[in-house]
Simulated assay, not measured.
Amino acid sequence: MNSLTRIGTVSRINIKEATVDVVYSDSDDMVSSDLQILKEHDMPKLDDMVLVVYLTNDPSSGFVIGTLRSEVLT
């Protein structure tokens, strides 16, 4: 992983644990491990674009800080 801040797409939601898996299309569709959602934000939906921050280069140390409007990135 080259960046501590990433943009990806939600591929799986675990409502009970309040986590999501995120696919990174810029990294050969690499899929994250379960990422927690910041408490202040609503749970993202499948296929939502999200901003993910990692605390270290460890792919299990990240969390989703929010969803992005897709028109912002085009």
Rank of each mutant, 00 (worst) to 15 (best):
L38E: 13
L51V: 04
Y24I: 03
V20C: 12
E40W: 01
L35S: 07
M49T: 03
S27D: 11
I15S: 11
G62I: 06
S25T: 09
T67C: 15
T74E: 13
P44C: 09
L55Q: 06
V72T: 15
V31P: 11
S70V: 13
T5C: 07
D58I: 00
N2I: 06
D58G: 03
G8P: 00
D47Y: 07
N2T: 12
K16R: 11
M30G: 04
Y54K: 01
V53T: 14
V53E: 07
V23Y: 09
D29W: 11
M43P: 06
V64G: 13
G8L: 02
I15Y: 10
P59I: 08
D29S: 10
V53G: 08
Y24N: 04
T67G: 14
K16D: 06
N14M: 03
N2P: 00
V52Y: 03
S25G: 08
S11E: 11
E71S: 14
L51P: 01
L68M: 15
D29Q: 08
G8Y: 03
F63W: 10
S32L: 13
Y24E: 04
D34W: 10
E40F: 05
G62A: 12
D47M: 00
A18D: 05
V10I: 13
V22Y: 10
S3Y: 07
V31Y: 08
D21A: 14
D26Y: 00
V31L: 12
S3T: 11
S33I: 10
M30W: 09
R69C: 15
G8W: 02
L38I: 03
L4T: 13
D48L: 09
S3E: 05
L35I: 02
L4M: 09
S27V: 09
S3I: 04
I15L: 09
R6K: 13
D28Q: 12
L35T: 06
S27L: 12
V52E: 00
L46R: 03
V52G: 05
T67Y: 07
S25L: 08
V53N: 12
K39C: 08
H41G: 03
I15G: 07
M1R: 03
Y24F: 14
V10C: 09
R6I: 02
N14K: 03
D42N: 08
T56L: 00
S33W: 13
I13N: 08
S70M: 15
E17W: 04
V20D: 06
T74A: 07
F63Q: 11
T19R: 01
D28M: 09
K45T: 12
R69D: 15
T19C: 03
T67E: 15
V53M: 12
G66P: 01
D48G: 06
D21N: 15
L55H: 05
G62F: 13
E40Q: 02
V50S: 00
L55I: 02
G8N: 05
